[in-house]
Amino acid sequence: MPKGEQPTAEQVNEVKTRFLKNLEEQPPAVPFHPSDLARIKDSDVWITQLLEAYKLDVEKAIIRLRENCEWRQSFGTNDITATNINQEYLNDGEIYVHNQDKDGMPLLIVNFSKHSKSKNHDDLIRVIVYWVERVQHQYNYEKKITLFMDMTGAGLSNLDLDFIKRIVGLFETKYPNAPNYIVVHELPFLLNAAFKIVKGFMPAEALEILRVTTKKDINEYVDQENSLKSWGGNDDYTYKFAA
């Protein structure tokens, strides 16, 4: 996927300087995590990606950077590990990272055939955050992620609009710089009407990168070797969690 317009060094520096000044003048009630502050002070990657995501809007990037630091502190994002999230959800194969898209970006797969509305949304979101953070650390925050909503074999009982809203909202506000594409694969005909509702609450930026695929055209975004057999590809992988 082509990159958005790149910010200048001056724009990055303005966000960084003003954010740190604001932090000094109006410190948060609970200090931000040292890892997040180090990322802002010692690297330009996070700010550059935010500016790119917000189309070089310096004001919006400053506001969202502070909001993100507040959320990461309250959510405990930096302290999430494979041992302190819901073990059933980590191991059941609904949410995991495997293979990559044609741009070389890791696939964060949400297998909706394994979803149930009775599952706890907060716990599921923590599993998603675990995988996003793991991938970002692995690639030093320099790779995007393709969110792959796998609808193969899913039915009305698996469709959970509130959960999809939570996922979209997470990427829209907490990881706006992360998605390469949002792929919805093999959407059953029965779910078309519901999916129109989903598109209605997606922000314009998400709609720009949304792709609805079938076995016929999945190769435009994920090649044959990186596509699971259930998607029409060659990979016979079965998920098993590995730390």
Results as ranks from 00 to 15, higher is better:
residue 232 G to A: 02
residue 72 R to V: 07
residue 100 Q to K: 12
residue 3 K to V: 01
residue 227 S to C: 02
residue 24 E to L: 13
residue 218 I to Q: 01
residue 119 K to Y: 15
residue 137 H to F: 07
residue 241 F to W: 09
residue 59 E to F: 07
residue 60 K to I: 02
residue 145 I to T: 01
residue 130 Y to A: 03
residue 31 P to D: 09
residue 74 S to G: 07
residue 185 H to L: 00
residue 146 T to L: 02
residue 18 R to W: 10
residue 54 Y to F: 11
residue 158 N to T: 11
residue 9 A to E: 10
residue 240 K to E: 14
residue 177 N to Q: 15
residue 216 K to Y: 06
residue 4 G to F: 06
residue 71 W to I: 01
residue 175 Y to K: 00
residue 227 S to K: 00
residue 234 N to Q: 11
residue 179 P to W: 06
residue 8 T to K: 07
residue 57 D to Q: 04
residue 241 F to K: 03
residue 92 D to L: 01
residue 34 P to C: 11
residue 129 V to I: 13
residue 211 R to K: 15
residue 72 R to H: 06
residue 27 P to E: 09
residue 49 Q to N: 14
residue 220 E to G: 13
residue 122 D to M: 05
residue 70 E to G: 04
residue 87 Q to C: 10
residue 216 K to F: 08
residue 109 I to A: 01
residue 12 V to T: 10
residue 62 I to D: 11
residue 234 N to R: 10
residue 47 I to P: 02
residue 87 Q to V: 13
residue 75 F to R: 06
residue 160 D to G: 08
residue 121 H to R: 10
residue 15 V to Y: 02
residue 51 L to W: 07
residue 223 D to I: 04
residue 177 N to I: 03
residue 53 A to E: 12
residue 54 Y to A: 04
residue 143 K to S: 08
residue 110 V to I: 14
residue 206 A to M: 15
residue 222 V to N: 00
residue 30 V to P: 00
residue 139 Y to L: 01
residue 185 H to W: 01
residue 149 M to P: 02
residue 49 Q to G: 05
residue 46 W to E: 07
residue 179 P to Q: 05
residue 60 K to E: 09
residue 157 S to E: 13
residue 52 E to Q: 10
residue 72 R to W: 02
residue 143 K to Q: 08
residue 55 K to H: 06
residue 199 K to M: 15
residue 152 T to Y: 02
residue 84 N to E: 10
residue 172 E to R: 09
residue 25 E to A: 14
residue 121 H to T: 12
residue 154 A to H: 02
residue 90 L to K: 03
residue 150 D to N: 08
residue 187 L to K: 07
residue 115 H to A: 08
residue 24 E to W: 07
residue 13 N to H: 08
residue 186 E to I: 00
residue 185 H to G: 00
residue 153 G to F: 13
residue 236 D to A: 14
residue 180 N to V: 10
residue 22 N to M: 14
residue 10 E to M: 08
residue 73 Q to Y: 05
residue 182 I to A: 04
residue 88 E to A: 05
residue 222 V to K: 00
residue 198 V to T: 13
residue 232 G to L: 01
residue 46 W to R: 03
residue 66 R to L: 12
residue 218 I to F: 04
residue 16 K to Y: 11
residue 163 F to L: 14
residue 75 F to G: 03
residue 24 E to P: 06
residue 206 A to G: 01
residue 136 Q to P: 00
residue 13 N to C: 05
residue 59 E to Q: 10
residue 122 D to G: 08
residue 64 R to I: 15
residue 174 K to D: 08
residue 114 K to W: 11
residue 155 G to M: 11
residue 1 M to W: 05
residue 136 Q to N: 07
residue 180 N to A: 13
residue 16 K to Q: 14
residue 142 E to N: 13
residue 216 K to P: 01
residue 108 L to F: 12
residue 210 L to N: 06
residue 213 T to K: 03
residue 147 L to Y: 04
residue 74 S to Q: 15
residue 164 I to E: 08
residue 228 L to T: 05
residue 214 T to G: 14
residue 73 Q to T: 14
residue 55 K to Y: 04
residue 160 D to T: 10
residue 236 D to I: 00
residue 41 K to Q: 15
residue 142 E to F: 00
residue 18 R to I: 12
residue 107 L to K: 09
residue 200 G to N: 14
residue 92 D to F: 01
residue 144 K to H: 12
residue 93 G to N: 12
residue 199 K to E: 15
residue 238 T to R: 08
residue 232 G to F: 00
residue 70 E to Y: 05
residue 115 H to D: 11
residue 243 A to I: 09
residue 26 Q to N: 15
residue 37 L to N: 09
residue 29 A to V: 14
residue 197 I to L: 15
residue 115 H to S: 12
residue 90 L to P: 02
